[in-house]
């Protein structure tokens, strides 16, 4: 990925360094490698190595409860997964969760960011509060919302008009999904709003003032001046959150355990590997999950032309 660029500090030294002796360059290179090595080794040990192993295992029919029956089956695990309606249903669920939650987080998060940006009082209080959902464990958020929606111990049914007190949110697909997404949106909107706040801070006040003087309405200023100027921040926030939402697992595990067709692709993979001990097909799903994340990342980067370098204001 060519979206990362060298930091300023080192770039400014380039001309001087070019002229410097190669000895120094060599020392610097070797020091840098030593400094970076532990991080690289550790990151690859826990990701690349297992991923390669998953790639290998995915070619076998292999169940942990019958290890002696392990058998090479080529690509047939991939065929089984890709031709299964369950795989596509869960992928569909995951994509829907991703789109809906990111949309709401973006809208609500932007509103929150505007409030925080203009805030003249209670700054500390608001910022402290907004960090609490971010810090709350996802599992706790899942429980809080599950109990809130529960018809025996929750308050949502009592507060919402047009909803009977007996209504069971977890009895069917639509309402279960709403509950899951409510928890997801609640927990992650603050994160989104902080990223957007940083973006807002980059929009020059002079430009807004100038637009004001020209007689632009509030909406015109928003669409013509503010949003275009913080596009990079928005896109980075969307990229990060979308990839995070695509991996949704905790909330589903806690709230429905996949009942009523509310499984995500992560949950499906987890069940094959950890609950059913089907390491063969489970590994194939792991590989597919990884590939699909790459596809999502690629699509977002290409379609929205996210430029991480832009976000760093270094372009």
């Amino acid at each position: 990925m060519s979206t990362t660029t060298a930091p300023k500090a080192s770039r400014s030294q380039e001309p001087r360094r070019k002229a410097a002796v190669t000895d120094r360059e060599r020392t610097e290179n070797s020091l840098a490698r030593k400094l970076v090595a532990p991080a690289i080794v550790l990151m690859l040990f826990v990701t690349a190595f297992p991923m390669l192993r998953a790639l290998y295992l995915s070619l076998f029919s292999y169940s942990l409860t019958a290890p002696d029956d392990r058998e090479f089956v080529g690509l047939s695990n991939y065929w089984t997964a890709l031709s299964d309606e369950l795989f596509w249903r869960d992928t569909g669920n995951t994509v829907m969760i991703m789109l809906v939650t990111v949309f709401f987080e973006l809208v609500i998060g932007f509103a929150f960011a505007l409030v925080m940006h203009r805030l003249i009082f209670a700054r500390g209080l608001v910022r402290t509060s907004i960090l609490i959902p971010y810090g709350v464990i996802t599992v706790v958020s899942g429980f809080a919302w599950q109990f809130a929606f529960s018809n025996s111990n929750g308050f949502v049914n009592g507060w919402l008009p047009f909803i009977g007190d007996d209504f069971n949110w977890f009895a069917q697909y639509d309402s279960s999904m709403i509950a899951i997404m409510a928890s997801e949106i609640w927990k992650t909107t603050p994160f989104m709003s902080l990223l957007l706040l940083a973006g807002l801070a980059q929009v020059s006040e002079d430009m807004i003032e100038a637009a004001k003087v020209d007689g632009a309405t509030w909406f015109q200023r928003l669409y013509k001046v503010i949003l275009p100027n913080m596009k990079a921040a928005i896109m980075v926030a969307v990229l990060f959150r979308a990839l995070d939402a695509y991996r949704i697992f905790d909330n589903i595990f806690v709230m429905t355990a996949g009942a009523n067709g509310t499984e995500s692709i992560s949950f499906l993979t987890y069940r094959q590997v950890i609950e059913q001990f089907q390491l063969g097909i489970g590994s194939a799903l792991s590989v597919l999950l990884f590939l699909s994340v790459l596809v999502v990342a690629f699509v977002i980067v290409k379609v929205f032309r996210v430029n991480l370098a832009d976000a760093r204001q270094e372009s």
Binding site: S152, D166, N168, A259
Partner: peptide, 11 residues
């Protein structure tokens, strides 16, 4: 029962 689809031994 109202929680038919999510009922267990305790509900």
């Amino acid at each position: 029962q109202p929680d038919f689809t999510t009922s267990n031994e305790g509900t």
